[in-house]
């Protein structure tokens, strides 16, 4: 894949609420937590439903098809570790039917000039290291 944030700056530190997301990611599955009380999805996974303040969630599989909500093309390295990886495209992707849940990740294998808000994307997976996988996106 082209356009990946260097693995040296990625360090996942899951907690009890986010661990199921990352465990599924390691299996290249996208799951989104959904409130068992009111059915509202929430991302990132948090201890409380923002709508009804209930805590329990069920993990719903998502096909990873979404819409590019916004993005930036990073052209300048704020730390030396990312210098050789530039340009990086950081995309904000909205998942349909999730009350506006968004994922943030690299848009890969794509020229910066081709990226437009509103384009459809699919989710792919970047295996950073054993047990640590993060979502990335491709223009559909």
């Amino acid at each position: 894949m082209k356009g990946l944030t260097p693995e040296s700056v990625i360090n996942l530190t899951p907690n009890v609420w986010t661990e199921p997301f990352w465990a599924a990611a390691a299996e290249h599955r996208l799951v989104v937590p959904r409130c068992t009380s009111c059915g509202t999805h929430r991302m990132p996974p948090t201890p409380f439903c923002w709508r009804c303040r209930h805590q329990d969630v069920e993990w719903e599989e998502h096909d990873g098809r979404g819409t590019l909500y916004s993005f930036t093309v990073v052209r300048h390295a704020v730390i030396p570790d990312v210098r050789d990886a530039l340009p990086l495209i950081a995309g904000i992707v909205e998942l349909p039917n999730t009350e506006g849940c968004r994922l943030v990740g690299n848009i890969v294998d794509c020229e910066p000039e081709a990226v437009r808000i509103g384009l459809g994307v699919t989710t792919d997976w970047y295996d950073v290291r054993e047990g640590e996988t993060v979502p990335v996106f491709r223009l559909a």
Binding site: M43, Y69, T72, A90
Partner: peptide, 24 residues
């Protein structure tokens, strides 16, 4: 745990992040 959902995208500074709002 929250930053894990942002930082792997390469967003590491306020200017990069506000650029996303500007683009929108």
């Amino acid at each position: 745990p929250e930053g894990n959902f942002i930082q792997p995208s390469g967003l590491m500074g306020p200017g990069q992040m506000f650029a996303v709002l500007a683009q929108r």
